[in-house]
Write a protein that binds this DNA or RNA. Structure first.
Lengths: 338, 338
DNA sequence: AATACCTCCTTTATCGTTTTAGATTAGATT
DNA sequence: AATCTAATCTAAAACGATAAAGGAGGTATT
């Protein structure tokens, strides 16, 4: 009932374990036979028995000895967040097809959790790691690089790290597109509600918003809310904006988007007549909301595909690359032409 | 830079590896010192050095020798689904605090994927498995039980399996509550749109709907849509229901809920005047939708907590239990009093 | 004085692989 | 006949931990 081992296979065949191992790990020739200095006949007998017993090598033992572990580590801030889970799902799907198992972890944006997870992963000798890093914890990632484990960063860049792959969203470009879209539809008094977080994606969006406004002769204004009191402050900001006659709001994080929407509903404001709004990140809510919401899609599954493929190349020894993914602006009824 | 090993620790201390291993694996006495036949003084020196080098035992090596693996396997049909990811997140959170790593996998409702994942998990010698099983694949789960690996089923029961833990939603009870809620609010012509799937939760909901309707002297009617053509058929069913003068729809799966809502919007139907609707499963869309949607919450994170705690007890050798979780009916504007 | 019995520690084997460094055999070459 | 070469195959060590069994040294018992 318990899985058969290499040793038992070898004994049944009357050969050494070395031979069996060689056959199984050899690269394949054009005709599908393993390319090692073992006779085709013996190799065939080995493969037949492997098949008969459905033998699966113990990845644990192989890993111990220094071989491939067939295991990847994936860290997201929160796997329960739709965007991260879509990315994770895609990575798992592709990796699984290649025989990898996936260890998942959520950092919850906490440096200590990220450190802990990375330590677990290194301890398990994973073959590669894909991580959406949280702010303020570069040391563990540096350790990953130092140990020669291929590492791909998703969405958030850490410029100081060398030799890591990156799959980054062009946040500045997408915010520029958002502002231009609003301008083109006749909106002028455009404000942003952002969060006081040390995360580059957010900084990029804020910077790009300000630059584009200024370049068009308009004055930017950002409400900065604190993470802890985010809900109350966001609602306060929305009320302020309504009172001031602001025409459009940009909410560059999904929690901000949802709370802003809730407060708009609560205040009885009509969208987009009293206030236009552009939300960020994907949510089933955007297309069922009335009116539908204009939003910036994260293309989360594409990001997963690109990150996995990049990691694969790096695990084969290729150099790390940086891939920029253009986000997609999905137009909805929350920002119609004025 | 690379992690220190037991052997190196032992050499530096001038003792055998066995001694160090014993100190580390011994149960603690009341005063916090390890309870093994090793002098307190030596034990203290060991622990000091362990601390100094931040030594972490290789779970892989320990696992190979037969020890605890500190690794759990979690399978959901789709980690990108909000309900499953909330459960998974909670499991990971709790497990991580106890020092476990988590291997995640999505079965995509495909028996072959589930089998593959289970095989991977067994190959990795996980200490326990939590799974929301897909239909028609009991063999691999039986194998888990046979190998003595503690197993907890979530949400979907497989009555034939013995010795497994279960955390189940009381689907029949929740559907009864839904129907009674609708009846209490004056609705009579209540229909269900369900999917032709061999999954007990769905069957329970269907059965309970029929029973409760009949018990109240009303005639039940279920539109059964095929999974493949679900979207088209659901929309068709909604149009039919509108034409027939149906008063309320129950959509017992989230995809059905979303497509039904989309078709109601598309047909210009007012909710709840032209059609009341009760959706299933949690979604941020329900509370931002206008009107807000009455739905049955899965209590996904509670399920995660309960499943993990049960698994822990089973890993300590306690007997498997079956836990019923009552779902929660969250009232919204989509089913107001008539 | 011989024996039993603690207390504290070590030797050795083992888990299931991979890898290094040969070993064996047969045929070809000198 | 001795040496070389190529083709196949193997023995043994290693990875990092754990467990079974046993040994050294001292104290207590007969």
């Amino acid at each position: 009932m318990v899985n058969i081992t290499l040793k038992e296979l070898a004994r049944e065949l009357g050969v050494s374990t070395t031979l069996v191992s060689r056959v199984l790990n050899a690269p394949l020739r054009a005709d599908g036979t393993p390319d090692c200095d073992i006779s085709r006949d013996t190799a065939r007998r080995v493969l037949e028995l492997v098949d008969k017993y459905n033998y699966k090598p113990s990845r644990m033992a192989a890993g111990l000895r220094g071989g491939k572990r067939y295991m990847l580590g994936v860290i997201t801030p929160d796997i329960a967040n739709a965007s991260f889970s879509a990315t994770g799902r895609r990575i798992e799907e592709l990796a699984s097809a290649d025989g990898y198992s996936i260890m998942f972890g959520s950092s919850d944006e906490r440096p200590d959790r990220q450190l802990e997870l990375i330590d677990h992963f290194i301890g398990q000798k994973v073959d590669g790691i894909i991580v959406t890093p949280c702010a303020g914890e570069d040391r563990s990632l540096q350790k990953v690089v130092d140990q020669g484990i291929p590492l791909v960063l998703i969405n958030r860049n850490i410029p100081s790290l060398e030799g890591v792959g990156r799959v980054l969203q062009d946040y500045a470009g997408s915010t520029r597109a958002v502002v231009k879209h609003l301008l083109g539809n006749g909106y002028r008094r455009i404000e942003m509600i952002s969060e006081n977080m040390d995360v580059l994606s957010l900084k990029d969006r804020e910077r790009s918003y300000c630059e584009t406004m200024i370049a068009n002769g308009l004055e930017p204004h950002i409400y900065k809310v604190e993470s802890i009191t985010q809900e109350i402050e966001t609602r306060q900001a929305v009320r302020d904006a309504l009172k001031k006659g602001t025409e459009a709001l940009i909410t560059p994080r999904i929690v901000l988007s949802i709370n802003a929407l809730l407060e708009l509903m609560n205040a009885g404001a009509r969208i987009p007549e009293d206030m236009a709004i552009v939300c960020h990140d994907d949510s089933p809510a955007w297309i069922t909301h009335s009116p539908t919401i204009t939003y910036v899609s994260q293309r989360s599954d594409d990001v997963g595909t690109l990150a996995y493929r990049l990691l694969c190349r790096m695990m084969k020894g290729e150099l790390a690359e940086q891939i920029m993914v253009p986000p997609r602006l999905v137009l909805g009824g929350s920002t119609v032409k004025r």
